[in-house]
């Protein structure tokens, strides 16, 4: 019994000392709106389209149906539309794009007061 009591007291003391040491450590968190983390290039944020040829692979691999395309009156040029409300930022479109036209940028603060701000339009592509 006495042995158990001593053992318990020792365990409690050791535990409390470990916790106590943490009072003098530097904080590991950042105060978010003032300080921001530097993100890596690989980060998958808002997609960016540049140099699209209109092959349609991104629409095919998108799991959430965030990408749509439509033809214009001449039936030649595609209008790509990324709906960021649906996008789950999986990066499939960027990975499978044969021309590396889609890039995932480091932009992650996408809240806005206008739903149109969450739609990315891209006009371009060749379809001859």
């Amino acid at each position: 019994m006495a042995l158990k009591l001593i053992k318990s007291a020792k365990a409690l003391y050791e535990g409390l000392m470990t916790v106590f040491v943490h009072l003098f450590r530097k904080p590991v968190t950042l105060e978010y709106p003032e300080k921001r983390r530097i993100l890596n290039d690989a980060f998958r944020g808002k997609p960016e389209v540049n140099g699209c040829v209109g092959c349609g692979i991104c629409k095919k691999v998108c799991p959430s149906g965030a990408i749509n395309y439509k033809k214009d009156e001449n039936g030649k040029v595609y209008f790509y539309e990324f709906d960021l409300k649906k996008c789950i930022f999986c990066g499939n479109c960027a990975y499978y794009c044969p021309k590396a036209a889609i890039k995932m940028t480091g932009e992650y603060e996408l809240a806005c007061d206008n739903p149109q701000g969450l739609k990315l339009d891209y006009k371009g592509g060749i379809n001859d």
């Binding site: 053992k7 318990s8 020792k10 365990a11 409690l12 050791e14 535990g15 470990t18 916790v19």
Partner: peptide, 8 residues
Amino acid sequence: EKIITENP
């Protein structure tokens, strides 16, 4: 483990 395992 110091904090948890043997803690009564």
